[in-house]
Design a protein around this nucleic acid. Structure first.
Lengths: 210, 210
DNA sequence: TAATAATGCAACTGTCGGTTGCGTTTACAG
DNA sequence: CTGTAAACGCAACCGACAGTTGCATTATTA
């Protein structure tokens, strides 16, 4: 799995080429990589096949990203944007919206692939670092929203916020992973509603807030 | 990945040997296989390494299980027992107990490995068939318990039982996958309590049951 | 304790991920 | 428009390793 290939020699005369064919190549390779990650995971991802499917010669890939982990890392970073939940004052609505958005950003298959990778997290140090980072960012952005809710009395003071974040994320993700299509907004609303409602009941403050 | 090896020639004179060394070999190989599945997944599982770690020659493994999927399938079937939740009349307690039991049956690392495999489900037709089967059995045994609860008025009539099963399982599993140690009984009780409580609130019958 | 099932060992092989050199295409500066 | 060199395609090549095979060795079981 270790590669000793030299990457593209740094241009000595003219400048780096970013447009036209090069841009097309990078785009198609990243897209294919992400898609295939969803299908077969990191370990069995074959550069050969990525190249073929992307309509590109494998040499090209090896020259740009000498090691598999670099390719995957680059592809991940190219796509991933973390959108924290809004704060409209309505916790359930904000979370629902956030999950709907995060689940519908890409094609379901791609989303599924990403979620699987994050869950799996047994690939390569470099790639894992990115995944862990992503995961942390997403979770903590949601956690922040929940903390706010607690502070405001939208959730009981004793609420185990971290647990809730796990429950919400994993429940929504299980729908993506197990079902054919992305879960509907209504379904996500059910999930969020159940968990938040359940939390309010379970940890209800002794003297009711508000 | 395709193998043309002949398995152990069926004994022509004496009988098959099941005890002593043979038994030890099978045990150790199965245990190692399960453990390594948890570490690196199906795709990158190397027979070589299973053999080494199990203190067995790789030839032995190849002769008994000519194809990787056979080895994995056998190891899985050797270990997996599905225990449906009891029915004591108290839904939350029964589910909690069932999850605690299912999560503490093996070493956490092994459990984690199994859960990952089930979630992933992109290995080999033969292996996947087993995993899907397992998953179905577990889910449907829990679903049955929930159906009973609905029938009995422990849950509202409109309850989306299937959704609940997914939420429960994925929430508990996320704890196993993400934390170092197996989740405590108290934590599992929290999860179950929140979800069941939330469901009761969300789908509450118009005229309160009972 | 003898017969033979099962394992160990070591050398071999075919496949495939990864590499290299060179000719061709094409982005981009002038 | 044109020339230059950056980026790509092609095809042959290499090395590692999963998977095999034959024979010697061990140890189950009748």
């Amino acid at each position: 799995m270790v590669s000793r290939a030299r990457r593209l020699p740094s241009p000595k005369f003219g400048g780096v080429r970013t447009g036209g064919r090069s841009a097309r190549v990078v785009d198609r390779v990243f897209a294919t990589t992400l898609q295939m990650l969803g299908e077969c995971g990191y370990g069995t991802l074959r550069i050969d096949e990525v190249a073929t499917r992307a309509g590109v010669n494998k040499t090209t890939i090896y020259r740009r990203w000498p090691v598999k982990s670099q390719l995957v890392a680059a592809a991940l970073e190219h796509y991933l944007v973390i959108v924290p939940p809004r704060d409209t004052g309505d916790l359930v609505r904000d979370l629902t919206e956030n999950f709907v958005e995060s689940v519908s950003r890409f094609d379901v298959n791609v989303t599924r692939g990403l979620l699987r990778m994050i869950q799996l997290e047994q690939h390569d140090p470099e790639v894992d670092a990115i995944l862990v980072d992503m995961r942390k960012s997403v979770l903590s952005s949601r956690r922040t929203r929940l903390d706010l809710a607690v502070k405001r009395g939208e959730l009981p003071r004793r609420t185990d916020v971290v647990l809730l974040v796990y429950m919400l994320s994993s429940s929504v993700h299980s729908q993506v992973i197990k079902l054919e299509q992305a879960p509907s907004a209504a379904r996500i609303a059910d999930i969020v509603g159940i968990i938040i409602g359940g939390a309010r009941a379970r940890w209800a403050d002794v003297r009711a807030a508000r």
